[in-house]
Design a protein around this nucleic acid. Sequence first.
DNA 1: GATGAAATAGCTACAGA
DNA 2: TCTGTAGCTATTTCATC
Lengths: 174, 174
Amino acid sequence: MRAYLDSIFTQFMQLSLTMDLDAFDLAILDILQRDNTSSQREIAQRVHLSAPAVQRRIQRLRDSGVIRAEVAVLDATLLGRPLTLTVEVHLHEDHPDRSAALRARIKAEPAVQQCYVITGEADFLLIVTAATMADYEALTERLFGKDDNVRRYRTSVALGCLKAGFHVPLGNTS
Amino acid sequence: MRAYLDSIFTQFMQLSLTMDLDAFDLAILDILQRDNTSSQREIAQRVHLSAPAVQRRIQRLRDSGVIRAEVAVLDATLLGRPLTLTVEVHLHEDHPDRSAALRARIKAEPAVQQCYVITGEADFLLIVTAATMADYEALTERLFGKDDNVRRYRTSVALGCLKAGFHVPLGNTS
DNA sequence: GATGAAATAGCTACAGA
DNA sequence: TCTGTAGCTATTTCATC
């Protein structure tokens, strides 16, 4: 019952939030998701609003969760991690209970940058960063080694990266 | 010849940069890649350095490319794009010349958040955001529809996301 | 790398539409 | 309720040691 009420509340919040975003908000968001170092004054004159108005809107977007995080994106290669790998994980049973431990290990593993629970042949898709293939092997051993619910995993090495980001297309300003 | 010199230069830069990063830099980077809103004063006292020292290091990390970008990460669901899809693209020929047009379309398509060129069965792995399945279908038509070098593509819908980011593990502070 | 001054950005209060 | 003006606080930035 509590979970049900929570879900209703979440839906309501999302609905009310989505409806409250106007063209100014979208313009501000699009600037910030490209370059979060833009000053409020600069944003203000680009979207034709005053600096405090921009400030208030940004604060509201942060509070409401539309802005999930403000982060620096680092160059993994320059930091000694030139390898990116993608891993499809196939389970025997994909019931949450059976894979809870695996999920926890994945969440706790810093080298795993992304993990999606997916439909289709595989159950998880991971994006992993590593310094060397030996390190990656050790990682797979830690994650999958003793888990008899993992049927198999298929690794692909990323030879290159055409694009990488979490940029969300925003209406006409996408 | 020019390309060769460029590659040598790049290698030299990377080497010199990698070697010049000390524990302070790594500590600063790890703070920034988690929360880029941290003030220099705050960072300074956390890493036991003065604020201007932190400021100089950050500037240097920006200039050298270790800090690739400073961005706001938005909630796609709250912005009307609740769907995330992963797409494996299989080509007939993976020679760059034959896939140049496809690469260009992928780069130009805002809904494609990430695209990795990978080894193994598939040639590309895409992470895509979409508002509806109809939109996604239209996207695949735009990207792959008239490209006879695309043998097939395999879509998986992301049912959930255990983690998502580009956080790079940094030594002992990972 | 630290200190301190100047410039700039961010934040709050208030008035008006 | 939201915008814009004004003014204050805090942060960033730069010159000097």
